[in-house]
Nucleic acid binder design. Structure first.
Lengths: 343, 343
DNA sequence: GGCTGGCACTCCCGCGCCGGGAGTGCCAAT
DNA sequence: ATTGGCACTCCCGGCGCGGGAGTGCCAGCC
């Protein structure tokens, strides 16, 4: 009883099933893979694999289908991420080069990823909590309102309107704003948002008392920006690919679409990034904490300017997916996006 | 042969079909609507309606189903937009009140609309080409790069990075920027983007020649922002509702999802706003120019601060939808969003 | 002990058949 | 113009029935 061959059989089953979408039987396996053994032997192996919970039969006397555990073993030990061809790499790179701003980068990325994998792509905007302040700008608008514009090193621009007690569109006001602007930027520039926010607690002492409240308001505005729910964003593309999966998937379609609308859930899943497997994390079927995604797998990784990750991206597809290729695409896209962001 | 009664029959058919999702027969009709006539009479009317192309039978000896033309007649002449209850109006208003910025307004709007109608909601961001300049801000970043931040009256904030020839992080540079900033805002504030852009052609004459190139660059940046494809944005919500429609709709699902990803198409459809019917436009089935949407209807309207429309919103659903209710929801949401935007 | 060919068995799947029922179209009568 | 009656059509669900793919097991063989 060769443990080794049994795993080869499992691999063959996964590959065939991914390819044909139909339960694979012992005979069909032999036709497409030249394992050097007979159908009967394969059947024995299959029986053991089923015993171990790696494959299952939809009903007696049908072919076998990989279970979630089977896929898990496959991605962990039986497959290698396919390297992408030079041509593909060039295409990816060129497609992303053309982006003019962050929105455009994210937009292109998500489209690219979905068309490369022919699945649903998910891309998270660079997380504010992991970004640093590049610049803070104060813009007086209307009478007593102030627009605070925050520009991060990751290229995100966030704005918030603050009500101030006094009219700022005066010479005095302009003067005060200029001072404050310089002061603010000195205190926050280069720091993460969290650091910047605490740092601002110290600034008021040195300033005109009248401005203290204002600074405090700005500090809380920064803090506000860090509240997850509100400022973490994800974008999707390629949901139409779900419809192509096959008839067996149509029942899952509703729940999956619902899950994809729960951006909070997606963010959580994109957030937990694994380090094994070239930084690409795979969550298969029921491994997924969210019930709506039990029929799907998620392949994710992190990206960011330089080495520190600022966000995640990945794809969602049926558990029956081509893992090596998908993982390759996800990894490649992440690499190139990171390169672009680093400028 | 009473023309009037025949239309009442059509109306009854539409209502029943929308309600049951099944072809409606003469007998079933009588049970649910007390038209004062017999089944045979209804059958005669149905025959005529079919002749006129307003209803159709899936096969001989089945009930009738409205055609696109039937729905059209229904919305044009046989139905009135249902007023929303005071409670509903309050709920809508309160839900939208809580928004803190434009992104939040749009996000809440699209969620609200999809949950009210239980269909796919589509909301366009206020169009840049129909917005006016509130403020232009110049932020020097890095060595020789300048970030131009444009804030519109509709609350949108657009940014663009410009490469300038000289280093601006000097005292002289700061000085020049301050002048330029004031000059720019005087020239553009309150104008539409298009006006502002042309207006800027005049500014350079009065300025230090060294700055002319810069102004020209800013002018083209404004122009850039007007290029449709790039800066018109739409957001969707409630795609999961498509899966709930029914088994007969599953085949259309793929094409519809594809169509919904073509934001350019959606924008075009949201753009052409009709004035009849309380400003709510309905595009039914094949009336839709895009093949992927032939099985769906789209109910749209415009919204904006005050009287001038700056963008569109609406829903996409199966042609078999509850038009009066949907139209009411679309109209109500548009009204309240407009109110919020007007602040 | 592991591999193999053979064989009986199971169960799905597609097919044709059939009865019931909903719905129609037509006609003669009012 | 409307109505009741009636014959007809066609879908739909259930049933039975091979055919076929696939399995499990066993006895033999290396």
């Amino acid at each position: 009883m060769s443990e080794d061959r049994r795993l080869r059989v499992l691999r063959a089953i996964v590959q065939d099933y991914v390819h044909t979408s139909e339960p694979v039987g012992s005979k069909a396996l032999l036709e497409r893979h030249h394992l050097g053994v007979s159908a009967a032997t394969v059947r024995n192996d299959m029986a053991v694999l089923e015993e171990e919970g790696l494959i299952a039969a939809p009903h007696t006397s049908a072919g076998r289908v990989p279970t979630d555990a089977g896929y898990r073993l496959f991605v962990d030990r039986l497959s290698a991420i396919k390297p992408m061809s030079a041509a593909e790499q060039r295409a990816i790179s060129q497609f992303l080069e053309g982006a003019v701003d962050l929105d455009d980068v994210v937009d292109r990325t998500v489209r690219l990823l979905s068309s490369l994998t022919r699945q649903v792509a998910v891309v998270q905007y660079p997380s504010l909590s992991r970004s640093s302040v590049r610049h803070v700008e104060l813009v007086p608008i209307g009478g007593e309102r102030l627009l605070v514009v925050l520009i991060t090193t990751t290229g995100r621009v966030e704005q918030r309107v603050i009500d101030v007690g006094t009219d700022l569109v005066t010479d005095d006001g302009e003067q005060a704003l200029a001072t404050l602007r310089a002061e603010l930027n000195r205190a926050t520039s280069g720091r993460t948002l969290a650091e910047a926010s605490t740092e601002l607690s110290g600034v008021p002492e040195r300033l005109d008392p009248a401005l203290r409240d204002l600074v405090r308001a700005i500090s809380t505005a920064l803090q506000d920006a860090l509240v997850e729910e509100r400022e973490e964003r994800v974008v999707l593309a390629g949901t139409a690919n779900l419809a192509r999966v096959g008839p067996d998937f149509t029942t899952s379609l509703g729940p999956v679409l619902e899950a994809l609308e729960e951006h909070v859930v997606l963010l959580k899943l994109l957030g937990t990034v694994a380090e094994e497997g070239g930084g690409v994390a795979v969550r298969i079927g029921h491994e997924n904490p969210y019930a709506g995604l039990h029929t799907t797998s998620m392949v994710t990784t992190g990206y960011g300017a330089g080495t520190d990750l600022v966000a995640g991206l990945g794809v969602v597809g049926p558990t029956r997916m081509d893992y090596p290729t998908t993982m390759a695409a996800v990894r490649a896209v992440a690499t190139y996006v990171s390169r672009i962001l680093a400028q």
